[in-house]
């Protein structure tokens, strides 16, 4: 009996280590849980990208299940994701854009707003426009409050304005099926 234990113990330890390291091969080091899940949207007051005199606040997300998509024209992956988002929008999903620009450095202010609008209009007419409207995160303050690390990222927000899902990276049919669909249907049913 004792002998068996002595023989098995290293084997068990080795297999355990093997499983642990094997999992590590396929885990995404960038995946970490958003600390804002189940929280309501942080307060903000930001202009519409196209009509800057119009202001939005966190209440804009109340009453409707929303996909909040963080993007920019400079972001290549966003361009790849736009046609699929447009398809989702055509299926009846409410998609709001959170737009931020790389070249508008709050310290310097290089690009004018009209130039940004022009680029956005051009990009959306080429690849499809999934957005009900775009919130212009001028100084990237809301992005920072949301824990955004880059673009594209997508948040699923429920009808009470609570963040239910935070996805880093592009949205595609596989991600939608594996990560979004079930929760989205649940939230819509609650509505």
């Amino acid at each position: 009996m004792k002998k068996y234990i002595l023989f098995l113990l290293p084997l068990v330890a080795f297999v355990g280590l093997l499983v642990f390291l094997y999992q590590g091969l396929f885990s995404d080091p960038r995946a970490h849980k958003s600390s804002l899940l189940e929280h309501t949207m942080p307060a903000f007051s930001l202009p519409d990208l196209m009509q800057t005199e119009r202001q939005y606040s966190a209440e804009v997300f109340n009453g409707k299940v929303t996909l909040l998509n963080v993007w920019g024209v400079w972001c290549i992956t966003c361009a790849i994701e736009l046609p699929y988002l447009t398809q989702l929008q055509q299926e009846g999903k409410h998609i709001v854009g959170l737009y931020y620009d790389q070249d508008i450095d709050p310290d310097f202010g290089i690009k004018t707003v009209s130039r940004v609008q022009q680029e956005v209009t051009q990009k959306l007419s080429q690849l499809g426009n999934p957005y009900a409207f775009n919130i212009f995160d001028v100084k990237r303050d809301l992005s920072l409050d949301l824990g955004v690390t880059g673009a594209p990222e997508t948040f699923l927000i429920d009808q009470h304005g609570r963040i239910r899902l935070h996805h880093i990276g592009d949205l595609n049919p596989r991600v939608w099926k594996n990560k979004f669909e079930v929760l989205y249907q649940e939230l819509v049913a609650e509505q």
Binding site: H32, S35, L36, D145, L146, G147, T149
Partner: peptide, 8 residues
Amino acid sequence: MKQRYGDF
């Protein structure tokens, strides 16, 4: 920072 970006 942790509130926004987690312990990471």
